[in-house]
Simulated assay, not measured.
Amino acid sequence: MLRTVPRRLLCGRGTSQAPFSARAWYQMLLKEGGSRKPSADSSGKFNILGPVGSLGRQDLVKLLEASVVHRDGVLVAITKPPGLPVIGKPGDVTLVSLLPDLSQKLGFSQDVQVIKAPGKESSGLVLLSDCPSTVQHFQEFYVRCRKRRHPAATYCAVTTRLPADSEGEIYTGLKLIYREDSELVVPVASPSRGSLQRKEVKNTLTRYKVLDSQDNCALVQLQPLTAFPYQLLVHLTLILSPVLGDHVYSSRVGTVLGEPFLLPAESTPPRTQVLDEALLRRLHLQQPHVHRLPLHLHLHQLLLPAASSSSSVLTAPLPPYFLQTLCLLGLSLPTKQTTQRHSKHLP
């Protein structure tokens, strides 16, 4: 069953400082096939499209080395660019495959391990440590957070439609299916007890809040209270507000005379996101170039266990392409945007 109900989100204080240059981070990301110049549109201004070609291993290591947002003893936090998977097949360029080189660059005596990271197409915070006991302590903390429905991660997303409610919860079953050698996530409105017990379906829950909106687009805060692949993307399609740059699940939201409706998930194949003409004009894009539009879903803040760091909440600044999109759409983060802080109720 899909449930979306209004809910007031609690906010608190506590953010870390980001010492690296976001502009340098994105300019490096936008190198085209080894070119030293970032991509630009016909007006000569930097656009929001991703690079045509992939960065090489050494460029990616340099990019990650420059993206440190926090370091405190054995704990280090970096911000990941969109499109870099955390794990993959042998021989694939992934975050994990780059960790030995990155560990050396950061001066660790042994390879760091991933504690927490966003999915492949998302950008945002990655927690790393070279201390196995620290890795275990943090991972157990995040498991306890999920069990107690305690939000530990806060994402920011740009959506191509404004949710009907300004804040609420999205609750539904999700399952993985396989179509043409690809893995897709589909909602299950009323999962049977057996499917849940066999773990074929998992009940999932996300809190959301609209932070700003303009002309039917929105900047949305998301707090997943469960963990499932692509949970946030699928949940946002269920409230007819797909994420900008979602080239897999946004096709499930159709329109008739400008009004959105939900298409059957299992029979709707992935495709490049189709944006309406008004939105394309605001973004200075043409539809044939939309396939290069990066996913506008960013792991913005993470809660830390008590006494594990000098900060209780870590923050990764929004990438420049994300900020440029906000500017083009007339959206902005609240001045004191922070995530929940539960220092008195940490699991």
Rank of each mutant, 00 (worst) to 15 (best):
H298C: 02
S122G: 04
P118N: 00
D92N: 08
E266A: 07
S21R: 10
V52I: 12
L219T: 05
S308R: 07
A18G: 00
D181S: 01
K89Y: 08
P229V: 10
Q113E: 13
P288G: 13
E121I: 05
L326Q: 03
A18L: 07
S250V: 06
K175V: 04
V185G: 00
S39Q: 15
L238S: 07
A265W: 03
T272Y: 08
H70V: 04
A117K: 08
L346C: 01
K45C: 14
H137M: 13
Q58H: 13
V185I: 03
L60D: 03
A189N: 11
S308D: 02
E32L: 13
V96A: 13
R144P: 00
L10P: 11
Q214R: 10
V76T: 12
L262F: 01
G56D: 15
L125P: 09
S332Q: 14
G56L: 09
H291C: 13
Y171G: 11
P242T: 01
L60A: 01
K31W: 06
S133I: 10
A22Q: 11
I115W: 05
S16G: 12
Y155N: 01
D215E: 11
I177K: 09
T339W: 08
Q337S: 15
S312C: 14
Y321K: 07
V112R: 02
P294G: 10
Y155R: 02
P163D: 00
S16H: 03
L176P: 09
V234K: 00
S192T: 15
N47V: 07
V5Q: 09
R292I: 01
F46N: 04
L106R: 13
L225C: 02
V201Y: 00
S43Y: 09
L98Y: 09
M28D: 12
V186H: 01
G88F: 00
T335P: 08
G258P: 10
P229R: 09
G258V: 10
L9I: 10
P260T: 05
P242V: 01
V114N: 00
P224M: 06
Q231K: 11
K116C: 10
L60G: 04
T226V: 05
H298R: 01
T206A: 07
Q273T: 06
L293C: 11
V112G: 09
L279M: 04
V188L: 03
P191A: 01
K31N: 12
L244F: 08
K120E: 12
L279N: 03
G73V: 14
P288I: 10
R207E: 05
S166I: 06
E277K: 12
K336C: 13
R207N: 09
